[in-house]
Design a protein around this nucleic acid. Structure first.
Lengths: 220, 220, 220, 220
DNA sequence: AATGAATGAGGGTTCATTCAT
DNA sequence: TATGAATGAACCCTCATTCAT
């Protein structure tokens, strides 16, 4: 599919990819300011000059990292097969997916945190990213609508709130793991702890969207 | 009788405080690596040398910032007057407090995020911080216990989970405001949006801890 | 066939050499602590960064200076043509060579003095230097052995002592010239004074190694 | 003898002395540029300000160190009891004294080396030092004259050369001990090595000054 | 006599980036 | 495509020194 298919172009693509991969790793580990150009090129087994050749500047490289990271998430999410005929289960499957993705991809969490500490200044420069984030609630909407259609879910729930709820509960545990472990005196990286938390939030999300059998007065 | 009560020593305390304040501001704005020593001393209307005079190094200064930030939160929390005879209300008051604190103190959110990006390496160096974080769930425990005593709250709920739930829901919205606003296409900094979210999570937290009147079993 | 033979690489070698030369000059003039990196790079008509590019650190640069300085001495010494059939003359030629080298190369004397004030800590880090110093007495040994073979020199003389004797007498005059001139009330930098001293020590070294015709015992 | 004899003045003298002592130690260890004002005041269990109170500046303090160091040597030398009726023995006693003083007072050797690396610029500022160094050959002169009077010593020997010879042979071994040990592959700090060297130079000095029973032709 | 607080200049070093081949 | 050489600005930090009590 590449417009250049020569062996040299292939090599070039590999070099570019290696640098991008290295940048993800280094920015995740050291932050944006802390992430050294040299660390990246060294990690990529390339040299500084190549980084500029392919990415123009450190800032542009970070934007590519941001896009790349989000794209990977999108790709994974798009593979999700959700059974809309069972909205409750579908919702819990989505929660489990998001949770597991965050756990397995600390770089996703870190890069987003870094970008937010920078007040989203890089994201603003990327129309590609706006396209990628497209409709963040895209996967969620049909589930909620199906649940509402079946009378299981609240009618007054805001899609955006459901999205934020899920993201909050999955993200924070991972993003703030270190201070939380210290403050709570428990190791949140522990598999058991993670499993317990997933159980708790999976249940919580359901509680958050389902119609409460409010005491007697059927307000149907 | 302390000899360190002269007008000179007072001035010194002020200088120290000014530097600390400036450090909070600069680290919040620029991150740890990005936060320049000169920016801090300039912001404090002092000079680089004094920063080292009072705080030894940039790293130690950051640790002090961490301690200071957490201490301020503790102080505010300790002023909370909660009515334990109405556990449900008390819980919602706590949620509102935490939410409002995070909204009004973006530096608290930012400093914690920075520290987590550094894998908590500074927090580990501070026994003072371990003391301050002490029992993070300290305020929460009596509420939950009161709620359980009154038969309102689930018996199987984990205190730590309740703490994490509240923190997640209040923190993430603020910490990731910028990318979220971009991805959701809505300005999360908007007062109305914030109010709506507080309403949602306040309700959600209650749903999370209350006994579900599902299985018909006589709940009084 | 070496790819490092381009015009570019040549230029690089020159830059490196210029920095090294400048470092010799500056360290000689200002000592190790007193020798400023900026003075060196300025003297070399280069910039600070290149110094680190080629030498990693000030300390490593000093080690290179040490090696370079000693190497130059070795090179000069190896050009000496000594007639071993006339050991006495050869010894005096060696003394004259050492003396003249010290006089003409104050940087050699200074760098060694600096290194000794640092208790030889840089020399210890250089295996290259250990190799260069190799057998310091290498030139001296055949002379002594020839002298002894001819029955001119003492049998009981220690090679190391002869080496130290020559070095002491040549070095100290130059290394401590300034305080000595002040204390003795004479200008030791004066050509005539230098010539007189060379005469004295040249004779002294001979006296030091030759067999004393004291005890009447047939010295035939 | 002090013009102030109050208890406070005594205390002050002690503080001053402690700082001077500390300065000798620190300059010896770290050189002039490398010797930190703070290291000195800390070593003296005093504070920076006191150093300036008593010595005006780092440079002036070094000058005092120089004077003090030389004064101590003078004091020790003046205690020497030499028997001028046995000039040869007296000369060897003097050699032994100088050697032992250098061995036992590395600070004397170091301070002089430092000062020479600075081209004697501090010594030049001290008329006190000029007075102290007075006639450096003062102790030596009567010995040589006595030896000449007894017909034991050469008539053509230059007093200054004898002085330089002794100083060279005693100083260099100590001042350049570290590089020499490395280059010669022997530990010059070893007691036995030191003793051997003293034996060698003691003999050498005698050879240097005594009349040679030149081959037959009595030139008496 | 003694000392904490303050300072400006400059210390060695590293940064992201560009040049030239 | 790839890479060594070069740069200037800025980094964190320390220096000798002075101020004010």
């Amino acid at each position: 599919m590449n417009k250049k298919t020569g062996i040299r172009a292939e090599q070039a693509d590999k070099t570019r990819a290696r640098i991008l991969q290295a940048a993800v790793k280094v920015f995740t580990r050291d932050g944006y300011s802390g992430g050294r150009v040299e660390s990246i090129s060294h990690e990529a087994e390339s040299n500084d000059r190549m980084l500029y050749y392919y990415f123009t500047s450190k800032e542009r490289l970070f934007i590519c990292v941001l896009e790349h990271t989000y794209e990977q998430f999108n790709k994974a999410e798009s593979k999700l097969k959700l059974d809309l005929s069972a909205p409750l289960q579908a919702l819990q499957d989505l929660v489990a997916f998001v949770w597991n993705y965050y756990v397995k991809h600390p770089e996703f969490v870190a890069i987003l945190s870094i970008e937010n500490l920078h007040k989203g200044k890089h994201a603003q420069q990327s129309s590609e990213l706006r396209r990628l984030s497209g409709e963040a609630v895209g996967v969620l909407r049909p589930i909620i609508e199906a649940g509402q259609a079946q009378g299981l879910f609240r009618e007054d729930v805001d899609l955006k709130h459901v999205y934020l709820m899920i993201a909050s509960l999955c993200y924070f545990y991972n993003s703030n793991q270190h201070t939380l472990s210290s403050f709570l005196g428990e190791d949140l990286a522990d598999k058991r702890q993670q499993q317990d938390w997933l159980g708790f939030i999976s249940d919580l999300v359901v509680r958050g969207v389902m119609r409460l059998p409010d005491s007697g007065s059927g307000q149907d």
